[in-house]
Design a protein around this nucleic acid. Sequence first.
RNA 1: CGGAGCGUAGCGCAGCCCGGUUAGCGCACCUGCUUUGGGAGCAGGGGGUCGCGAGUUCGAAUCUCGCCGCUCCGACCA
Length: 491
Amino acid sequence: MSKGVTSKKEDFARWYTDIITKAELADYGPVKGTMVIRPYGYSIWTSLKEAFDRRFQETGHVNAYFPLLIPKSFLSKEAEHVKGFAKECAVVTHHRLMANPNGEGLVVDPDSKLEEEVIIRPTSETVIWSMYKKWIQSYRDLPILINQWANVVRWEMRTRLFLRTTEFLWQEGHTAHATPEEAEEEARKILDIYREVLEDVMAIPVLTGLKTEAEKFAGAVHTYCIETMMGDKRALQAGTSHNLGQNFAKAFDVTFQTEGNKLEHVYATSWGVSTRLIGALIMVHGDEKGLRLPPAIAPHQVVVVPIGKNDEDFSAIKDYLATALTALNNDGIRVHVDDRLTVSAGFKFHEWEMKGAPLRLEVGARDMEKGSAVIVRRDTGEKSFIQRDNLVQEVPKLLEEIQSGLFQQAVTFRKENTTTVENYDEFKKQISTEGGFIRCGWDGDPETEAAIREETKASIRLIPFDEKPEGISCIYSGKPAKHEVIFAKAY
RNA sequence: CGGAGCGUAGCGCAGCCCGGUUAGCGCACCUGCUUUGGGAGCAGGGGGUCGCGAGUUCGAAUCUCGCCGCUCCGACCA
């Protein structure tokens, strides 16, 4: 176990927050539930943004920006949507402060009360659809495929760094289509992009499927999701893609003229992933020594730790490596030389393990004599000698191995912790002891779902696309299963 | 919002019961020397309205009351 970090086995929740602060990913903000994303953490977010954004552009989406402040009345236009968000909205009621007439500090100026209160967006469907009403007249205006990168605020009771904070960063796509088929296709296409980025870039295996009525987005016809398993075997919803049908078009009266000159409401989707993904990254790949970052998004893929006494030693080491490091840079490998003289080499080893750098290169006088270096993999801890002249060839290979190795480890872990059960007693036992994912039959009744949740704390995470409900029965009622589903305790 | 606990240096804590020197310890920080292949050693140093406010007292970190803030556990959520 690392110095100052709670053991993952002993207390997973503390281990998680310890890593975030020790690896300098984030820190607590001054307002309860807020979070500062520090440069190292923000670099990861930037890489994720780029990975998603590139794929959005490739599929015809464009970025735009809508305002943070929304008229309160907008939220109430879609009945389900109100129910979903009303309880957690920050409301702006005044626009001015004044010196406290009774003493020190500032107070709200009662004369500055707003005629119509505004809310801080918990999500942007309502503003965006108020604008789409202006922009859409004919089928020729469709589709609209807009995405925005923004912050949103949801006033949460209980918060946790990255997983649930009052303000968070995300991406929200909002599309408008002429036909239900097109909207459906869009929602599924985005889900594929999410799966691809999670698996190929973040090395996190995902399950894809449909949310139940109880779990779907407020205002959606149906919600697709990607669901992941964390290191404590609990489920984390990592992203959602909603087919909104005509719900928002009706709420905001957005119609278009069809080719046949008929007036019809527009079909919509919305979809998002957030900084929560960084939480997933930590909880899927982290180990007792700290973070383990997949090379694809590691701020530094290779960290060089020179072993020496002073500037002259370090200069000699940098000269020794110059050609190799330049070549790696030219190949797009992100290399960082940690040439701080104020901390020891041993300290740096621990620090970069905490920060999850995929490869560490140690170079000292002994290596220089031999024309070699020591290279250490963060994923396995494996330490080996490498010839300096082989670095350019070997480093990219090792990074690829680490990327796929982390993914394989996560796949294996999920497989080992996904079980099937024969009856409800076994189900309860499994959930309360080992946990993990349980794949079983469900009769499709919301009351069954609610009862199981009440009794076990496990919820239906999703109805997987590859479900085979034929011939199996509901784990709770014993009736023929309508769906095969995944149950788990979730974040 | 219900239950429990905690506020003393940047962080983690001791001191509080039983009031009485200049409020202490570890880590971190600064300076110097020696070190540097797995969290260096020694020496010196800086940093505190003891959460805030009132009260009791000759005297309050310590006792009393009020307030504020935070953390953890239960109902909602990406």
